[in-house]
Amino acid sequence: MRAVITVIGKDRVGIMAHVSSICSENSVNIVDVTQSVLQEFFTMVMLVELPAGGIPCGELADKMNVLGKDMSLEIHVMHEDIFNSMHRI
């Protein structure tokens, strides 16, 4: 399945590196990423592929939440279907 990871917060060194390492440690493949910094405000949207039989989406969300708390960032991990169903007919 695919999930969308969103990261919002004050810009600092290493945000992408930390998020990516959690993905890599859990065999989660990054399919696409888009990121911007506006007035020190960091936003990133990452599309990832979770391996079949690998880490469940909920567990990845937990790990990202821990990172989010450590780095004072708002990180969400959500199944891509929620966006597809809301914004695509």
């Binding site: 969103t6 966006f83 597809n84 809301m86």
Partner: peptide
Amino acid sequence: SGAFTLLNMSDIMETITMIE
């Protein structure tokens, strides 16, 4: 390649704003 269709960053942010 599966269910994935083009996602737009502003759509994603809209969903997250609605929930949060």
